[in-house]
Amino acid sequence: MNPFALRQAALRWFHRHKETQAWALLAPGFGWLGVFFLAPLLIMFGYSFMPRGEYGGVEAGFTLEHYARFADPLYIKILWRTLLDSTVCTLICLVTGYPVAYVVARATKWRNFLMFLVILPFWTSFLVRTFAMIFLLRDTGLVNTLLINLGVIQEPIIMLYTPFAVMLGLVYGFVPFMVLPIYASLEKLDLSLLEAAEVLGARPAERFFRITLPLSMPGVVAGCLLVFIPALGSFLTSDLLGGAKEILIGNLVQNQFTTARNWPFGSAASFIVMALVLLAVMIYLRARDRGNELGAQ
């Protein structure tokens, strides 16, 4: 059989076996994730039920003590604070991100440039941007120097290493993840719907709340999820901008794996975060399915 005929035969075979073709395309991705994501995850899941080894690591056995430790008010408080911070951060991102997405989606001439500005922060690492915030917020930083020189204040306002700085850092880091999906859903919005609403008697506010907002809900929900999930697991921001005074669950996990060398407890904490994330995703999928039922056209 010559090479050309062989190739034809192979193509025909693939054509008849669509499913095999799909698996062949999925195999590299599945393989990668299986080896480098699923396997470590399973190992960690196993660790979270094993007794702690004396010099780090784990010993053989089965225990629920690491999960039980979360009943301790100390950890419940950390968990609660993390949830609260992530929720507040998500809400701030929503109220600041939605108008930005709205303006960008409506812009004609400047749209690409504005989009470029939204994406620009991703060009440098999150770590570098967080350090830059320190220069902005510290007592001798840009904000305080400016306010003192302008005579607005005499003494520097203490901003760095406060919950305010942590929240500022979280919002700053995650707001693009809110803007992008909302932009995508607003950009698809058929403007003739707004004209129809206007002829039917709807004033600007009514048009927004009755038409624009409901139809951009899929973007809002996706944006909230994209902010809430990384906020839940964040540790860098509270470490650098909060001065590690207030620890979040992300800091706890990091500490257990590094300084405390308590891998099983760190693993258990990770899985608790993951359970919360899964819960958020389930809420999202529910909302999206309902949105699809309503918005499908």
Partner: peptide, 25 residues
């Protein structure tokens, strides 16, 4: 009142809610 070329029905509202929209406004 106006009828649009592509109908411009509100996709997230049922037929009766679409028709009621102008009355509500």
């Amino acid at each position: 009142a106006m009828v649009f070329q592509n109908y411009a029905l509100f996709p997230h509202l049922s037929v009766e809610r679409n028709i009621a929209f102008g009355l509500e406004m």
